[in-house]
């Protein structure tokens, strides 16, 4: 085992595209989102360093841990969330190719992105406060609502490309740009369900502040909350990157630095879409969310898949 073989994975995990890149870009995207949201609401919005300032401020605050909770679980959950998001990022192509592409990494990444949601649930459940418990239950309920349409929507391009490998899918989509037009419904479904996954308006039901205070995070404070927030920012990057790779042709054949520029540009665009969604709607109720996901989004994504299968047969 050479030094190089140890160093380069460490570099991938800690610097790029892992922890360092994700946290910097995640906080940047959070700023983009907040600024955009503010501009749409006739406000000025925060300065670019605001998310970092918030993070540092939270780190400086006292971390209060409830008396009756499972302390070890309570303390480690934010890091579980973050670790699973970073692992997922290693599978998403930032360059033309993912770091470790293999058949089926699409499924693995969806699985990895479910882990943060599970940690939110456990966070709420373990903090033994009524608001957090209700929030935790809502996290799980919501998971069952958006997960299926998201999975089905991501399946569409995979069927078309005939591969479970994200890198191959994005290459295929880039080579057949006309097929992108057919994927628009699937793309929109993916963006909407990603909004649900990130628990943002109109799907911020698990922590709708006017209803259940902070939801699952009610009892979290200080550094632990800061890391949860960071994990959510990172999840936003990974989610946007996944949609970018599956639907928008990834880095579009570019290489080196240019590939990163294309990646940053397109993920920012997806986040802009997410903030528009956030600005134009009111929060819906949990049962309305489930109805919407199962009665509208899921059938639509099935139609999309059927369309893709037909197309696939046609092209051969």
């Amino acid at each position: 085992m050479t030094l190089d073989s140890v160093l380069s994975p460490l570099f991938f995990i800690l610097v790029f595209p892992g922890f360092f890149f994700l946290s910097v870009y995640g906080t940047f995207l959070e700023w983009v989102d907040r600024k955009c949201y503010a501009l749409m609401q006739n406000r000025i919005g925060p300065p670019i360093y605001q998310p970092v300032a918030d993070f540092i401020k939270l780190l400086a605050k006292e971390t209060i841990i409830p008396k009756h909770c499972d302390t070890a679980l309570f303390k480690t959950l934010p890091f579980f969330a973050m670790a699973s998001v970073i692992t997922a990022m290693l599978l998403v192509p930032v360059w033309p190719q993912a770091l470790f592409p293999f058949q089926g990494d699409l499924v693995v990444i969806i699985y990895l992105l479910t882990i943060p949601t599970m940690t939110f649930f456990l966070a709420g459940w373990s903090s033994s406060s009524p608001f957090a418990t209700i929030g935790a239950v809502r996290v799980l309920t919501q998971l069952f609502a958006y997960e299926v349409p998201l999975m089905l929507a991501l399946l569409g391009p995979a069927i078309l490309a005939g591969s479970w490998n994200i890198t191959e899918i994005s290459k295929f989509m880039f080579q057949n740009p006309l097929l992108l037009i057919v994927q628009i419904p699937g793309f929109l479904i993916a963006v909407i369900t990603l909004q649900g996954k990130l628990e943002r308006l109109p799907f911020d039901i698990p922590h709708g502040e006017t209803e259940i205070v902070g939801g699952a995070f009610t009892e979290y404070s200080g550094g632990l909350l800061a890391f949860f927030n960071l994990a959510i920012d990172m999840e936003m990057v990974v989610g946007a990157a996944l949609i970018n790779a599956v639907f928008l042709g990834g880095s579009m054949g570019a290489d080196g630095i240019l590939a990163i520029v294309v990646f940053l540009g397109k993920t920012t665009f997806i986040v802009l879409l997410l903030s528009v969604l956030k600005a134009i709607m009111a929060r819906i109720r949990i049962e309305q969310m489930i109805n919407f996901c199962w009665k509208i989004l899921a059938p639509l994504s099935l139609i999309q898949i059927a369309m893709n299968i037909a197309l696939k047969i046609r092209i051969g």
């Binding site: 749409m40 609401q41 006739n42 406000r43 308006l201 109109p202 911020d204 709708g208 006017t210 600005a279 134009i280 709607m281 009111a282 929060r283």
Partner: peptide, 16 residues
């Protein structure tokens, strides 16, 4: 009311 149902954009508009 808009804020209570999570529609902050309307909240900002009306207060403006």
């Amino acid at each position: 009311a808009a804020h209570e149902i999570g529609f902050d954009t309307l909240f900002m508009y009306t207060w403006r």
